[in-house]
């Protein structure tokens, strides 16, 4: 089987979720990675060094310096027929581009796979992860997005893969990139962090998140939030953990003032260890927590900070 992985990168390194996708792809067959961008050398050599990759295809041009679905799709279609499977990360990058590719191949995509049974059978969560469907594709080319938390990151180095340039494909310009505004933070990225400290409606306002940030900095952790906290305007949307936010599975997840709605649990219940701090002992978050502390977060979090400083 020949498997194509559509890489997401920032011009200097592959994104973490692409490394997880490469591991999933290697379960299916020989892995070719497509790297499209304005400047691909560093990323291509990083991908080539991975033990799990067999071939790296590079499409280098300014038109790929920002990942518009309208420009990436014709490029992917130009090589798609050489592969049995096309995989991408289930990030906003992969979710934006792959269905466009899939439709033009006349193929029904399978989104967010979490397990691979064989070359055509996969598990995927439905209903916010409250059920897992095992689905079998009859398509000649399988187009799949991969949930990063379900597969290890490919990091093992092996014999270098061949790097080959491919022709760029120009398309009629119907969309245009204007700008990105990335949230600046010295903390680890939410989806990559080993430890995440999250706040919910119980935080009461955005200023109080500083308490969580202090604890996070002592632990080298990222800061997250429930949808309730985001909807209340305490923090911006990219903090959101849950069905429609980020799906994460850190080593340690500390939920502070989060009741534990099913949509939130969908985003964090695969974490290795879950801690819940909530004053309501009936809160559903305690049903999934390994360690629960019933108490007022405004007295407990300063205590936690002091204890961690010891």
């Amino acid at each position: 089987m020949s498997i194509l992985v559509i890489a997401e990168h920032d011009g200097s390194a592959l994104k973490g979720s692409t490394l997880n996708t490469i591991t999933a792809a290697a379960e299916l067959g020989d892995v070719t990675v497509l790297i499209a961008g304005g400047n691909c050398d560093t990323v291509a050599s990083q991908a080539a060094k991975l033990a799990a990759t067999n071939k790296i295809l590079v499409a280098e041009d300014e038109i790929y310096s920002t990942p518009l679905a309208e420009t990436f799709t014709p490029l992917i279609l130009s090589i798609a027929r050489d592969f049995s499977h096309i995989l991408g990360p289930a990030s906003t990058f992969g979710k934006n581009i792959l269905p466009r590719v899939s439709a033009l191949l006349d193929v029904q995509q399978i989104s967010e796979i979490v397990a691979i049974h064989d070359s055509d059978t996969f598990d995927r969560p439905i209903y916010a992860g409250n059920a897992i469907a095992t689905v079998q594709s009859k398509e000649s080319i399988k187009v799949l997005t991969v949930r990063a938390t379900a597969f290890e990151a490919a990091t093992e180095v092996g014999s270098p893969a061949e790097i080959a340039k491919i022709e760029i494909v120009t398309a009629e310009k119907i969309s245009e990139f204007i700008s990105t505004e990335l949230t600046k933070s010295d903390r680890p990225e939410l989806t990559q962090a080993k430890i995440v400290v999250s706040g919910g409606r119980g935080m009461q306002n955005g200023e109080n998140f500083i308490m969580l940030e202090r604890v996070a900095d002592l632990l080298g952790a990222a800061v997250g939030a429930s949808r309730a906290a985001v909807d209340s305007g305490f923090v911006s949307n990219d903090y959101q953990v849950g069905q429609t936010g980020k799906i994460i599975a850190p080593e340690l997840y500390i939920a502070v003032g989060i009741s534990g709605a099913i949509q939130h649990l969908a985003g964090m219940k695969d974490s290795n260890v879950i801690v819940a701090i909530n004053k309501d002992e009936e809160a559903p978050i305690f049903q999934v927590a390994d360690y629960g502390l019933v108490g007022d977060l405004f007295t407990e979090i300063p205590k936690l900070e002091a204890e961690l400083q010891k």
């Binding site: 193929v107 969560p125 897992i132 095992t134 594709s137 879950i274 360690y291 629960g292």
Partner: peptide, 19 residues
Amino acid sequence: RINTLKVVEPSSREAGVIV
């Protein structure tokens, strides 16, 4: 184009301890 072979409950977490 896709057959659903089965739908199951996800593996559930056990509640832990209250400290």
